[in-house]
Structure formats: structure tokens, C-alpha cells
């Protein structure tokens, strides 16, 4: 019998491990199956067809997807898109997108930083300009997870007044291009998202609920995130590298699969800010 949140997580982990152990890792998990499992809407409120749980439960699924080294758009949708939408002002448009995220009716992702650099400069990747013909969106963001697979992208932009907003755009929108960026880790998918004078006359721009920098998480969450990101991502490379060495000639073979984890760990270390960039941010507290 499921009685508490710890049981929910144990149950979730057991189901996830069982489902992912059925040899689907290489081909990815069918999107329908992810949706039916309820994993896409763990953090989405229940009234919007989600489970009304927290990021801690999403983490359980992420850990198991990582263990199985699955190719999936889960990260873009259930983490980036759902997390971005949760930080927005409640509105009919936002609620509908959360509902679509949870049901899996649409694959979403969010372009909130340009991953080409450290991604910690705080630069907003897109900009809305007032043109004589109406508002136009410009900008670009590299290494957006699952961008080429998404049917709808959430772009972080500054409006003409300099206020951060989120612009939801369908993949086929005129002026919007998504170019896949293949990486050494073949289990992951990224895209370069570029907007050139995208016509925003239709509206649909979504505002944040309060200050976007503090909309997500508690005070001090940034410090904890930088500590965790710099430490855990460096440790993962060391652990996977040591595993490769300890398995010797067998570890180096394609079949052992250790190279998959080493590549994933190396990639994760450079995404969303290198350990050096996060430590630089932490060091600012002491100046």
C-alpha cells in the first residue's frame, strides 16, 4: 500500500527501472508510454491533468533514464518546459500548455540560455523589437535540449520594455529555424534555435509570476545549484573514467557500454555552465 511520499518515490523508481530494463534504451521509450506512465506531468497540478508532485519525484525518473542511458525528449518537456511554465503567471494559455506537457499531446522544450558559452552570464537569448509592422522576435540559442524533436518551443525573451517574458512558438513558425547539433554522446539531442524577425502579431506572449530570477525555488537556491552542479558533474566524469580504467581492456570496448556513461558525464559537465563557471559564481559571495 502506498502511504507516503517516500513510498511514491520507491514505487516510481521500481516501475521506471522495470520499464526501462526491457531493452528499449537504445531505441528510446515510446512517447505514448512516457505519457501513459504519468511521468511527463509529475510536477503539473492535478487540475491540469498532472500528478501534482514535486521536482524530487521527477528526479527519480531522471535518475532511472540516466541509468538506462535512454534517448528521450523527457528532459526538454518534463523538466525544462514544465519548469518554465510553472514559473509563469497563471493564464489560460499557460494552463493549456501545461496540460499538453502532462498529457504528452505535444513535445515541448524551452530555450532559456544560449548553451554555446558558459550559459551563466544571465544573457536572455531572444529579444522582442517594436517594428512598424508590429512586434518581431530575434535571437538565437545553441544546445537547446530536444529542440529538433519538439513541436512547440518556449523561448525566453526580453520584451521592448526589457522585461523577461516567454514566447511559445510552434516548430513550423515562419522565421524560426531549428538546426540539429549532433554531439559525441549519441544518446542526446540538441538544436540551435534561431529566430529572425518572427512575427508576433498573434500575441500569446506569457509573463512571469513575479521576478523571474526568484520565481523558481527559494532564496539561496542558486548557490545550492552551483555547488551541486560543479561538484556532481565533475565527480561523474571521475567515476565514469575510473570505471573505464578498472574494467581495463574490456571497459574500453564498445560492448561494455562504459563509454556511453563517460560521454554523457563529460557532456553534462559542460551543459548549463561548466564547474569553473559555477565556482566563479560561488566565489562572488566572498568578494
Amino acid at each position: 500500500m502506498v502511504t507516503g511520499i517516500a513510498d511514491v518515490r520507491d514505487e516510481l523508481r521500481a516501475v521506471a527501472r522495470d520499464l526501462l530494463a526491457r531493452g528499449q534504451a537504445a531505441d528510446g521509450v515510446p512517447w505514448r508510454q512516457l505519457a501513459d506512465s504519468g511521468w511527463l506531468g509529475l510536477e503539473v497540478p492535478e487540475e491540469l491533468d498532472g500528478a501534482g508532485l514535486t521536482f524530487a519525484e521527477t528526479v527519480v525518473v531522471l535518475e532511472e533514464l540516466g541509468r538506462a542511458a535512454v534517448t528521450t525528449s523527457y528532459f526538454g518537456a518534463a523538466v525544462l518546459a514544465a519548469g518554465t511554465l510553472a514559473a509563469l503567471e497563471p493564464a489560460a494559455g499557460r494552463d493549456e500548455l501545461l496540460r499538453q506537457t502532462a498529457s504528452g499531446a505535444q513535445i515541448l522544450t524551452a530555450a532559456v540560455v544560449d548553451g554555446t558559452d558558459d550559459g551563466l552570464g544571465g544573457a536572455v537569448p531572444f529579444r522582442i523589437e517594436d517594428c512598424p509592422a508590429g512586434p518581431r522576435l530575434r535571437g538565437h540559442a545553441g544546445f537547446v535540449p530536444d529542440a529538433a524533436e519538439a513541436g512547440l518551443l518556449l523561448l525566453l525573451a526580453l520584451d521592448p520594455a526589457g522585461t523577461p517574458v516567454v514566447v511559445p512558438l510552434g516548430a513550423g513558425t515562419g522565421g524560426l529555424t531549428v538546426t540539429p547539433q549532433p554531439v559525441v554522446d549519441a544518446t542526446r539531442r540538441f538544436g540551435l534555435v534561431r529566430a529572425e524577425a518572427v512575427d508576433l502579431d498573434g500575441g500569446g506572449v506569457l509573463g512571469f509570476d513575479g521576478d523571474p530570477r526568484t520565481a523558481v525555488g527559494r532564496a539561496g537556491a542558486g548557490v545550492a545549484a552551483s555547488m551541486a552542479k560543479s561538484y556532481a558533474c565533475a565527480a561523474a566524469v571521475e567515476v565514469a573514467g575510473t570505471a573505464m580504467q578498472l574494467h581495463g581492456g574490456m571497459g574500453y570496448t564498445w560492448e561494455s557500454g562504459i563509454h556511453v556513461y563517460l560521454k554523457r558525464a563529460t557532456l553534462n559537465r559542460s551543459l548549463f555552465g561548466s564547474p569553473a563557471a559555477h565556482r566563479r559564481r560561488l566565489a562572488r559571495r566572498y568578494t
Binding site: 548553451g115 558558459d118 545553441g142 549532433p182 554531439v183 559525441v184 566524469v237 559542460s270 569553473a276
Partner: peptide
């Protein structure tokens, strides 16, 4: 060699992952 390449891949960032 291993330490130097580790350092290289770290400072190259995501673009360093795209050379296949």
C-alpha cells in the same frame, strides 16, 4: 595526456562535443 584532454574538453564547453 588524460589530464590535459580532460582539461581541454572541460574548457571547450558544448561546442567541443560537436566534433564527431
Amino acid at each position: 595526456l588524460q589530464r590535459t584532454m580532460d582539461f581541454g574538453v572541460e574548457i571547450a564547453g558544448p561546442p567541443g562535443q560537436t566534433v564527431l
